[in-house]
Amino acid sequence: MDKRNLISGLFFLGFSAFVAVSSIGLGIGRLTNPQAGFMPFWTSLLIILFCLILFGQTFANRSGSAGRADSWSQVHWHKSMLAAGALCVYMFLLPEIGYLAATSILMLALFKLSSMKILPAALASLLTVILSYALFSFILNTPLPRGMLGF
């Protein structure tokens, strides 16, 4: 039995139950005049239906494979988490200190994370950030976010 199907199925059930309840709040309307909740309501009901089928399949296949063994173990999943974390921090820094500064920091962190030495990492991040900034600002005329320092 693949436990992952149960977890994902439960998530979908919760998700669609929330949508279905909110849809009723939006108003489902009648066929002559379907309202805003019409589409989300029926879609979430379909999701619930298919979740139940997925559960049925999973239980019927009790003896089957337990899923990929390597999905969490045997990997450095903290690396992906760190990268995602760095991007989260970046999101908040970007509007404050502008593209050039924020992205330099992000790239430095990412290069470090993929085990580069500090020196080439610093060089590489400065280079990529300045090049991308130049490309967008001067050739493509698309302004990248400026921070409080004006760049």
Partner: peptide, 25 residues
């Protein structure tokens, strides 16, 4: 090695300051 990295960090900071001066006017 350490000295080198400090040098580059310093160089980076100086560059950013210069750019900010040019841009803000």
């Amino acid at each position: 090695m350490k000295n080198h990295s400090r040098f580059f960090v310093a160089a980076g900071v100086i560059m950013l300051v210069v750019i900010s001066l040019i841009c803000s006017g």
